[in-house]
Design a protein around this nucleic acid. Structure first.
Lengths: 186, 186, 186, 186
DNA sequence: GTATAAGCGAGACGGTACGTCAAGTCTTTTT
DNA sequence: AAAAAGACTTGACGTACCGTCTCGCTTATAC
């Protein structure tokens, strides 16, 4: 005998949060602003999410689904394709890099948000790990983990510090170096 | 012919900031608290630093100086030593990891702080880059950069996401994989 | 369709402001202290008043209502009664003199507050003016205004400079002199 | 073997204080601004005066000396002349009204300044009192005091509340009413 | 088919911290 | 010893957001 959750409000909140984070920078995102932009009461946000970070994370989960695991036949080829596609999704004014940086920051400052973010990260790691293991089954264990950390680590490092571009050349270099780690021809 | 800067206040601020960041978490660090703990007026902080991030960064610059570049004869050996020492400095209750995570977050949220932090990061990259190039001169260019990004990237990735430890085993694995990237015997 | 203004907070603010002004002196009244004493956020004060002066003025408006216009039959009698009652309200530890002095000071230093205070003053002048005109209709115009200014002026002058008491003897003297200005037998 | 007080600094401080008070309003007068405008260290101000109020009061003491007691033969004439001259000194952009208002406010808020200000006020009262007593010796006592309070009170009241002008017409009206209080022809 | 309880937009609320301003004091160097 | 310069501690300012809490309205069951 109760009213049901408004799908319209849910969408408006997700979209407003993402668009405000992109335009003004994640650091200037506020609950008041999101609520106002979405034409929604603040309580409606707090009723369904624990923080703005969770809202934004929700929007990214959908984005990431559009990344299929490639099949080129070689580790270097698969990595080049996967990393290239991942970088492409982040680049540009409509890319997710700005928002990802904000979420990473949030996870450092808000202990409540860190687990959700870690879970999101783990999902991405699982995909990359499976690519590595498909070509180098023997690497199972700390070596595969380290390779995954080196690849995604390099990506995040550049995304966060901005000392170099996340372009296809970088994707290729990373793929080549990772392949060599596991004995593919140099 | 005016009063000179108080060295006592400077030290008190640096020490209070670092100790509060370690005890309560960087996210709960406030200017009011630092000023109170240092027995200092807030204005004195704002007079000499642009934000708390800059204060904390100042304390870390001194810490990092204590890391000497190693000389073991092989790339893998040097990397193992360098990464191991770096990780050791970050570990534990008196380690710098908690504070580094906070600074990385700050750099994402505060555009004014990002350049200072990037400069700090670049100084660390320079040391690692020189180690790589000493052993593999031919890697000069994007390959050396990528190797540096993969190593420090993996470190930051684990520091930020906390999905794995920064211990000597990880240092060794990273060193071995990086050495293989550049043709050292496996 | 929003939450309505809290009557409880409104009263607590008015009472705290008045009581703090009386105990510590108007000059030491601070927004922080009023908010703390009232158990209220500062924003709640700023939401409804433009300055502490307006808050205190609000409490005085109610106080002043308790002064009825007298009817003794003569100008001198009415003035004696009216001024006597007015002075009495200001005297003593629970009197309003301390607070009135503070408001007068505020009006000099804060251009935004001056109009509100002038309006409050005019309301009081209107009462005294009507007493004068009831007995001396011919004084309408600058003479009545001047008489009002001389009576309230003398009161404020003593309140502000504190060179003489605001007692019933002074009320009587003022009343007598004002009556003579308008030809009542001496 | 000591340096003597700098007359140049003294003058610069007095002039800067007065001019800043007139241009920006007494309420916005600050010690920093006066010191900067006078090309003087803040300590030099604090060494010789207890507060900015005392500085400004010093400048006014000289101004007031330029008011000679008039001799027209009648109470009404003398009062008209005296009040007219007094009002004239206060009017206009170079008048002292703005500054006097500020000092009166200061005296209400700063207990340390009130005595100095009261002394200044009393000097002015003495002049007006002597005029009244010269023409109405019998008024000695509370009646003369009350008349002085009514005249200066009316002046201050208008100066502070700004509900009417301090012009020669008002001076005349006040003089006439005061004369009637003491039996001069109506 | 209507009562009723949850969802909702709105926005007031108690708090915490911000970054700024000015006060009055202290220290350094110069005159 | 007085002065210019300006750093220092202190304390209050007015603002921004936080997360919580009514308020009155809307709407989808469950009776």
């Amino acid at each position: 005998m109760a009213r049901t959750r408004s799908e319209q409000s849910r969408r408006a909140i997700l979209e407003s949060a993402l668009s405000l984070a992109r335009s003004g920078g994640y650091g200037k995102l506020t609950v008041d602003a999101v609520a106002a932009a979405a034409g929604v009461g603040k309580q409606t946000i707090y009723r369904w999410w624990r923080s703005l970070g969770e809202v934004v994370l929700d929007t990214l989960r959908e984005h990431a689904k559009s990344l299929p695991a490639p099949e080129t036949g070689s580790l270097e080829g698969d990595l080049t394709a996967f990393l290239g596609a991942t970088f492409r999704l982040q680049r540009g004014p409509n890319g997710t890099a700005e928002v990802l940086r904000g979420l990473m920051a949030e996870a450092q400052l808000d202990d409540g948000f860190a687990p959700s973010f870690a879970e999101f990260i783990e999902a991405r790691r699982a995909v990359l790990r499976s690519i590595v293991l498909r070509h180098v089954p023997a690497a199972r264990g700390s070596e595969a983990e380290a390779t995954v950390d080196m690849l995604f680590g390099a990506m995040w490092y550049r995304m966060l510090v901005k000392h170099g571009p996340l372009d296809s050349a970088f994707a290729q270099t990373l793929a080549a170096l990772a392949a060599r780690q596991h004995g593919e021809k140099r």
